Every structure is written in C-alpha cells, then in structure tokens.
Computed example of a mutant assay.
Amino acid sequence: MINLGKTQELIVDRLASQGAYLKSTKDNDDESVLLPMKEVEEGVEIGDKIKVFVYRDSKDRIIATTKKPKLTLGDIGLLEVVDTTNIGAFMDWGLEKDLFIPFKEQRGKIKKGREYLVGTYIDKSDRLCATMNVYDMLDTNSPYKEDDKVEGMVYNINPEIGIFVAVDNKYHGLIPKQRLFRSFELGEKIEAKVIKVRKDGKLELTIRKKAYKQIDGDADRILSKLKSNDGVLMINDKSAPGKIQRELKMSKASFKRAVGKLLKENKIKFIEGGIKRL
C-alpha cells in the first residue's frame, strides 16, 4: 500500500518518458505513483527499490519525490509562512508545492515570513495540510523537573487559561494566566523555568526571574511608563492588583519592590493617588 504523507521504500514497476512508476509490491493490481524523470537516477531499473516521500503536486495528483520534507504526516515542527491568501496560508516544508494551512486550522492572525509550530494531517479531500492545533500531538513524557530551565514556542493564547507553550517543540507547557506579566505573540520563542510538573506530565512554567533579579527590569518598566505619561502615574502601593497588572504587566508585589528601589534612588516620589518622576 502506498501511504500519502509518508516516506517509504517503493519498487520500480515500469519506466516511461515521464519518469518511474513505483509500487509498494510486485502485485500487478497494486496502485502506482510517478517519480518524475528529473528525480530518477541514471541506471535505475525495473525491480529496484527507491526511498521516496508521497504527496500531492500542484495539480492535486499523487506523486513521489526523493526530496526530504521538513515534516511528514503526524510530525510537529516549525515552518515559515511564505504566502497568505483569502482561503488560507502556505508554508515552506522543503518541497516544490508549499504546504497549505486552512483558516480554520490557524490560531490568531499569522504573518508572512514568521515561523509557527504546526502539525500535519490529511483533510476530508485527502490532501496533506498543516494545523496549528497541535495540543493533542504534544507529549507529556518530558525529562524535565521543577526548577529546570526550558525553551519553547507559544502556540496558543487563551486569556482565561494562559499561554500554551510547546517545550522543545514537543512537550506540553503552560504559563498560567496569573503568571502573565507581559503580552506574548503566537510563534514567539521563549525561555522559561518549570515551576510544577503536573500528575499528567504537563509542565507549568514561568518566565519571571527570581525577585531580586527582576527588580531592575520592573523599575525600568515603571520609569518608561512614567516617561510616556508625562512623568505621572496614578498608581501607588494601595492600588488594586488588577489595575497594576493592566497598566504595567506586573504583580502588586513586584510593583512595590520596584517602587521601593526607585524611591531609594530618588528617581520618583509619591503624590496623592500615584507616583511622579523626579
């Protein structure tokens, strides 16, 4: 049987001007697929075995290639968007025909030239396509434990839950919404730390540094916000945590630590209901 979307070893059944027709067995009733002449090596004979990848060409015909695609059926990996259209987008996966990703399989607005984590599947029309819905394709059997540093890519954003991250582009990871102190983009590569390995094997992550390392960054963020707001922010240590997070993308505790640092350095002062840059 010839398997669409898979790399497989097929047998040369016959040779023609178009190329070599390949079968999975020597059975005369077996289906065949064309390997174009430009990819047929000199000296190939009937009965020889050739390792090929099978997909559909630009005319939607099943065809074989000796080229190696970046992803095969069921794989997960990073692909670059090379074109966006009114029916979906196309991604470079190393073959002449780009891989199609329908709108319904996209997460958010994807951009030409950006890489995104996708998986491959066969749609109802028997075509190979890409999908950004990779949740069920990720593994829970990671080698990581609490406090380990990891790298991954943001593949989904859910304001009610948090940021979904594919650790090593392979394992389930999540930054819970209560640990989000800045905005993220789909396809963004991040460095994080494991704060918990759940019973189901999924990883809870944080990108926050330890408090004493984070203060400088938080202080710079406050100063930048003050500069863009005419030197005044109507937020202080009595403000609601939600307001602080909306305005500065940091927790109230982080805000208070950073404000303490800026006060000691005589860079700000308290005013009624807020702070002012000096």
Rank of each mutant, 00 (worst) to 15 (best):
S58K: 12
S58A: 15
R61I: 13
R61A: 09
I62V: 15
I62R: 07
I63A: 07
K67I: 07
K68G: 04
P69W: 08
T72I: 14
T72K: 06
T72Y: 10
L73S: 10
L73K: 01
G74N: 09
D75N: 10
L79H: 04
E80N: 12
V81G: 04
V82Y: 04
V82K: 13
D83V: 11
D83G: 11
D83K: 14
I87P: 05
G88Q: 01
G88A: 11
G88T: 06
F90I: 10
D92L: 08
G94S: 05
L95G: 03
K97C: 06
K97D: 04
K97L: 01
K97A: 04
D98T: 13
D98A: 12
D98N: 13
D98W: 10
I101F: 09
P102F: 00
F103W: 03
K104F: 07
K104Y: 05
K104A: 01
E105W: 08
Q106L: 09
R107A: 08
G108Y: 02
K109Q: 10
K109H: 10
I110P: 01
I110L: 15
I110D: 07
I110S: 10
K112Q: 12
K112D: 11
R114L: 08
G119P: 00
Y121D: 01
I122P: 02
D123Q: 07
K124D: 04
K124Y: 15
S125W: 12
L128K: 00
T131S: 12
M132L: 06
V134R: 03
Y135C: 09
D136P: 01
L138M: 14
L138F: 06
D139Q: 05
T140P: 08
T140V: 15
N141F: 04
S142Y: 07
S142P: 00
D147L: 14
K149T: 14
V150K: 08
E151H: 13
E151S: 15
G152S: 07
V154A: 04
Y155V: 03
I157M: 14
I157W: 05
P159K: 10
P159C: 12
